[in-house]
Design a protein around this nucleic acid. Sequence first.
RNA 1: GGUCCCAUCGUCUAGAGGCCUAGGACGUGGCCCUCUCAAGGCUAAAACACGGGUUCGACUCCCGUUGGGACCA
Length: 475
Amino acid sequence: MTEETRVRFAPSPTGYLHIGGARTALFNWLYARNKKGTFVLRIEDTDKTRSTDEYIDAILEGMKWLGLDWDEGPFRQTDRFDVYRSYADKLLKEDRAYYCYCSAEELEMRRKAAMVQGKSVKYDGRCRNLTEGQAASSRGQGTVRFRMPQQGQTVVDDLIHGKVVFENEQLDDLIILRSDGTPTYNLTVVVDDVDMRITHIIRGDDHLNNTPKQIQLYQAFGYAAPKFAHLPMILGADKARLSKRHGATSVMAYYEMGYLPEALVNYLVRLGWSYGDQEVFTRDELIKHFSFEHAGKAAAVFNPEKLLWLNSQYIMSSAPEKLAELVRPFLVKEKIIREDEALDKAWLAKAIHTLQERARTLVELAASLRYYIAEDVVFNDKAKEKFLNEKSRDILEELKAGISSLSEFSIPELEKLFKSIVEKHGVKLGALAQPARVAMTGGTESPGIYEVLEVLGKEKVLSRLEKAIKMIGGA
RNA sequence: GGUCCCAUCGUCUAGAGGCCUAGGACGUGGCCCUCUCAAGGCUAAAACACGGGUUCGACUCCCGUUGGGACCA
């Protein structure tokens, strides 16, 4: 019987869920779902000065929006200080760890000296073998260091990079407890991963160099090291690590900009993973096909253009009824409807159906819904000048007359009417469609004119034509 | 500075020695469709960092160089 797969996402609540974190969470989630394993969420909040509850909520919110549900947690490291302490005590008792009384200033000086001499800047082991007497003199304010083996090699078994070999003599006697007794990152992460029985550690490759030290800690505690998968970093256009100055990095900022979570997920997963030539995936396909065999090793540049394209693909293929729900907050935000205003769902879906292949985001969708929903048309000056003038008055009059006497207000009937008017005047369809379009929408870009008219309905169409004709007359 | 990682079009990537005249996608240009804008279709330009090996044969394997990145901080 094979062991259950257990993975975890372990963010520090020192900021919102950002793109890089979301990608790490996503790969963990996909791996867990693919293996029918367990996805654990752990909040690494030991840095009390920078961690806040607000950020914890923000991270959970981001994960929920992306649809990354976890099976256990969220656990908080601040609840577990006693556990870390007991693991450290165990190492101390077994002489796998020792007290170190070197001050931060001394260490800094020696580090600099080592760097100048071109030597490895690791701890020089000064307090490694202090006698009881030597130690007793300053006991109390020391840090606790892990006694790293100095011979042999440590091998990281990585699902993406293969076996990565480190010489143990390069490994530092890392500090596991600070002089105030608080645990350090390398201790908490190993203790938690041991306690939570994590089988696969999937995280950014900025942690690869910490891994051999953690493996040694695992072994000191008497456990076999888990498998690792170190994901490449996500970079900005300038190839520097993605950060605020590259624009939106918070996941929820993409919600605000009108992105669908499916699009972001799809984009993020393709950043460093592929499945042949396929670009667009359903969630089930992602879960089914996901594996580290197709994961890349190289850092990837975040490309907002491609994300936007993917979003437009998802908007195009979404059910209008679903988009109607999703676009609502954006309609409110754009002040197109009031917060308590009800809209006819079927009608809204019909309107959206005409717009979904021209809106790349929900924000754009909301913006173009304005001319369907709002009472007054907002005219674009150039469009008005070009198409609502003396030249178009007669033909618009005729259109208005034709429409009011139409027995059936439908797309085929409207099309017939337009064709006959155009034929009679000996002009191209555009000579009628464009003025009509401006009269209906205020601008020159819209869905097909018959669709626009049909969505608006006879009454609104007639009143907008009336208004346009009046505007021309008054000019 | 030491250690580790990485390297295919501008970007994301396919490629597990002959299938490569290096494929797809985004973006960009052109054409078609067309009532506008989109969508869609067709099409063009665009890459194996460099140098050595190994091999009958290297984008693919090995070594080095260069360049990027991470960690130690």
